[in-house]
Amino acid sequence: MRIGCPYCGERWNDEFIVLGDADALMKRPGEAQFALFYDYVYLRDNPAGRHRELWYHQGGCRQWLVVTRDTLNHTVHSVETARCVAQDREAAS
């Protein structure tokens, strides 16, 4: 499986560390909202198909990336930097 890093180009996935579901992990609720915080820490959609996930390019540019990948066949559909995704989200809200 190879991931097209926006800075470094296409690299084997052993250069990266994967953290998990980007949509779940990038929406951190306030710690006072117990039910939401439980969802954030523990519950995952775990879909079979397209999945947006956080990868860290440890062996390259050391940027956090949001990779859209198919969990049924490992096809990488798109790669964005997490910074851009977060900025877009802030701009939209």
Binding site: N13, D14, V18, G20, D21, N46, H51, L72
Partner: peptide, 13 residues
């Protein structure tokens, strides 16, 4: 392998 997947195959590393 460490990433979410439903494919019954892994990677070389």
């Amino acid at each position: 392998d460490g990433y979410n997947t439903y494919a019954q195959r892994g990677n070389l590393y």
